[in-house]
Nucleic acid binder design. Structure first.
Lengths: 203, 203, 203, 203
DNA sequence: AATGAATGAGTCTTCATTCAT
DNA sequence: CATGAATGAAGACTCATTCAT
């Protein structure tokens, strides 16, 4: 009896199980058997719904990416179009909102990043997403700064966010979300007002 | 052919081959067979010299870590003790000097980071190293800033360095070392003079 | 082909193949590949059902042990409780009933014995079984003899059974089961009536 | 500088190391590397002196066998030719004299026995030796008993000796040499005087 | 739709042996 | 004479995938 909608349920079930498994064992030691066990289903069904392990991994990464996008988008919708600081802040907050999924998502994310270096399929996903983040930042900064300053500011903030969050993934026990937010916001503000303190840049 | 000192030669040879292999295939797909082939030796010899794959991986990470330490230490030796900016700059430059080993080292580094999340042995190595970087930065900043500001500055700079560098690893074709140096230095300088532009922090 | 109950069938199949392989190649040269080939299945399935080679070896030893126990128990059930000679004879016959599995079982048995000297897991199995044989014999003899005589009688009969059977394993072509039974029974009877011929013991 | 007699020294050194290694790890886990380490020489030399591992194993077994022969022969030399009890007793004592080499020799012996079942080379050694023991016993018993009785007596005593000793090898902590000697002698005496208590045999 | 039995390629590791020095 | 570096075959084990039911 082919239940309608069973596919959706199974897919979500398996993606969730994949996240849990990666969190627990690391991507390298994530096997189909472990995922299936965690999901409470048989191993064979994964190939059935995702065509194979790679398909499931990719779908899981897509899921994580879209969660991030959603977290950012949601906050930006609540921001007035002209409010540059607001948009930048929304991006920052959206990125650290990932922390809601906590350690699990951070590990998965990082694992995907590394994996993407050698898997074109994942690389594309990661690239698209990253480019969007960067161009968004670039655009916002360019509304206040000259192009080359804006680009550096965007580069810097993107790197700072990734770096804070990377360190959080590596040392979850010492991860201080509030400090991360504070530091990122400080950086962004400083970029926007750097014209005022230009002198400090001399070097 | 029991040549004396063969062990040293082989160890280096195998570590180099490991770096090349990780660069090429990713840590996950780095096998003993591939490393051996790259080194032009038989697979069995790896266990002979390193006790096993894990031993070789660990030795390789140790090598990468000590290269970084050396790059930083070298620059700091050339810096006067009282020169805070100089020391911080030395740390920044040392970290981006890794680029000399280029993509290969960056990928390896990142792979180790991720792997360390699930391997206590690597975790320890990574932890020790990271703590040293952080406390060095913290110390330098604390010579100019109040403790909590210094801590945030160190956190921020460490994250920024890691982030810039992480993005470089992910997008080697778009990695601009000069921009990275510029951004990191700017950040450091700004931190040191943030008292002057305190107002910008409000948020 | 998920036939229900396949596990039971495969387990038996693999244990039988193990016995055949040990008989043919000796325990030392018994490999997973050979067992699998003998069973007509793939090598991977052994780990699937027994967790690994050791698990299969242990299960096989357990099987051999329980065959022996069954052979003895069966004969003892048919013996009246007060019939000391009968019980001892049942034990003797049960032990030589192994000959039904013939050379194969004898070799396996001996291989396990030796192996058990260096493998705690097997040692335990062998120990439990041996202790049971010995205490059964001890109990029966003690119903007729003083404790120390009974213990020596049990020791002697156990050793005699093992020895006869060991020599049978080593020289299967010259193994005479009837002679073995005759010798063991004679020994047992003599022990039970040794009081009458005490004089013969002087030495 | 080819030292005269070096070969003898090395051979003995390596055989001793083999005994120690088998005692410690079991024959199955005895490797050339371990033997060489135990002997304090390089692994390569084993092939040089013994042609290979098998050669060393065989030489070691030969050594153990000749130690046993010597132990028996020595005692028999001290026995008058007509003294049947004396000769049988010499054989018994000689066999348990192995205990002087203790656990080590017992384990090695047993390991060889098992191994011999699948190695023609060892089989031959073991066979020759065993046949000698048996025919010696047979001859002595036949000086007092009719042929078929003598053969059974010899079979029984040989089996009893092997069995006692086998159980000693398996349970060295509970091995009581005096009890073993007592039981074996009792058996031998009983055989020699069984005519007197023939009635007890009925069954 | 879902299972889980089965496979076979691939991984790491061990080890006896060879050989240049 | 002796070493120990090096090999390559063989071992146990893992795992993604397939498929009959």
């Amino acid at each position: 009896m082919p239940k309608i909608g069973m596919e959706q349920i199974r897919r979500r079930q398996l993606i969730d199980a994949t996240l849990v498994t990666i969190d627990h064992f690391g991507l390298e030691d994530t096997t189909i058997a472990r995922i299936a066990k965690s999901a409470g289903v048989s191993a064979g069904i994964i190939s059935h719904y995702f065509g194979g392990k790679d398909g499931l991994i990719e779908a899981t990464m897509r899921e994580v990416l879209s969660q991030l996008s959603a977290a950012v988008a949601e906050r930006r919708r609540a921001t007035a179009h002209h409010d540059v600081e607001g948009h930048i802040n929304a991006i920052i907050e959206g990125n650290f909102d990932r922390s809601q999924v906590s350690e699990s998502a951070m590990k998965t994310w990082l694992a995907f990043w590394v994996s993407s270096m050698h898997r074109p399929q994942l690389k594309r996903l990661q690239s698209v997403n990253d480019r969007r983040l960067f161009s968004n930042l670039c655009y916002q900064f360019s509304r206040r700064l000259p192009p080359d300053k804006a680009r550096d500011a965007a580069r810097g903030l993107a790197a700072l966010i990734d770096g804070l969050w990377l360190r959080g993934a590596l040392m979850p026990e010492r991860f201080d979300v509030d400090a991360a937010l504070r530091i990122a916001r400080h950086f962004a503000n400083e970029q926007l007002h750097s014209c005022d303190s230009q002198a400090a840049l001399a070097q």
